[in-house]
Amino acid sequence: MKIAVMSCIHGNYEALNAVLSDIDDHKAEQIFCLGDLVGYGPHPNAVVEMIRSLDIPTCQGCWDEDIVEGLNACDCSYPSLLAESRGKAAHAWTDQQIHPETREYLAQLPLTIKEKNMSFVHGSPNGQHEYLLPDVNAFTALERVLSTGSNVLFCGHTHVPYVRTLDQTKMLVKVEQQGQKDAHYQFTPSVRRIVNAGSVGEPRHGRPHATYVLYDTDDQLVTIREIEYDYQKTCADIIEKGLPPIFAWRLAQGLEFAERADDPSHVCER
């Protein structure tokens, strides 16, 4: 079966439409969405409406959570003063724009979706705020996948797509325990994968195009898709709707917005 996984749409309706039609062209049978439907972009309600009408199983992202719970992020969520003031401006705008039914929908989204040997999360199984970057320590990466009980972990949040295969893992463990016989064993989990779906609406891979992934559950083939769309229209809407214009500039560059916390393994406890 061919599935499509997308993430981080961020109120970018133009990009979502382009991705959906590409998914159509590739005849994916099922779509999964990893959250962050709102934030940064100009069309939060339209994006949520589209996802709902297509009945796409969706996890809750960090922006979705913030809109539901209110913005009480701890300091560490913002790596800089600038990121904080921009984040707050975007949050306030989105909060004021979204309809009650949009908020209700975002509130009931699950943190994790499990389907056969696949798990779907926004950031990591530890929470929506943790970044699973492609170069995170291999044992840490494996721990995250194994904690879900799945073989393949789909995540987003970093806005840069990647596929990481973790293979040939061997760990030699020795345990001495008071009152017990010493134990020696080899821990050899089978191959595991982390698939980051990138970002539909706020790409940060250096180009303005939308990204998502296709996955074939039969041959486990992952295809990273990069889709061109009329980003200038989204940029114009960002400015017209009164969002910080720098978001439009960054969207057009496909630039990383410096909102990543210093410590990628930090888990925000709220």
């Binding site: 973790l166 293979d167 893992t169 463990v173 345990v175 990273i224 990069e226």
Partner: peptide
């Protein structure tokens, strides 16, 4: 509890 030895290989594919 001692992790005496451990290794894991990774391959990353990006755009």
């Amino acid at each position: 509890y001692q992790i005496a030895d451990g290794s894991s290989t990774s391959t990353v594919i990006t755009l």
